[in-house]
């Protein structure tokens, strides 16, 4: 197997994207929970949420997926045409509330290759860090994306 991890690819590891700030809108929380099919009232009912241990409407755990940096993925000389989502590692430190302003940055933290059912696959692990308006780190999400040639070329 010939490695596709060139020096220029490797040089992308460890560089932070530009930060980007997003407003947490109550409507976006409601639509996100509805898309999951999660009827929990802490995502849409002010009265129930105010009287819960959360003391107000909060975002579902995977909501921050919506907030991408700019550009969404830092410059990356991807050698393959296709990409699949390999997984996520979420760590939570504080709640995300309607009205918060969340600043996200992303950093490529690892690259590795594996031979698999889709041929040679390049795995890219990226860390998204989410900080709120009080400068509190609320969550970290480490995503793995799998780049591959595609069946036609295998």
């Amino acid at each position: 197997m010939v490695s596709v991890i060139t020096d220029s690819l490797r040089a992308a590891i460890g560089k932070d994207s530009k930060p980007r700030t997003h407003l947490v809108e109550a409507g976006a929380i409601r639509r996100f929970a509805a898309a999951i099919g999660d009827p929990n009232p802490i995502y849409h009912d002010d009265h129930v949420a105010d009287n819960s241990s959360y003391a107000g409407i909060v975002a579902p755990p995977t909501f921050l997926r919506l907030f991408r940096p700019s550009p969404a993925i830092p410059e990356f000389p991807n050698p393959y045409a296709n990409v699949l989502d390999g997984g996520s590692q979420w760590e939570y430190f504080d709640q995300v509330r309607a009205g918060d302003r969340i600043t996200v940055t992303i950093r490529l933290i690892d690259l590795y290759e594996r031979e698999g059912s889709l041929g040679n696959m390049l795995f890219a692990v990226r860390e998204n860090r989410f900080v709120n308006q009080a400068n509190i780190l609320v969550a970290v999400d480490r995503d793995t994306e799998i780049y591959y040639q595609g069946l036609a070329n295998v």
Partner: peptide, 16 residues
């Protein structure tokens, strides 16, 4: 099905 949607389902499993 989106991978992230599957994560959302498993998060709901836990929060429920």
């Amino acid at each position: 099905v989106q991978g992230a949607l599957k994560s959302g389902f498993l998060a709901q499993l836990i929060t429920d």
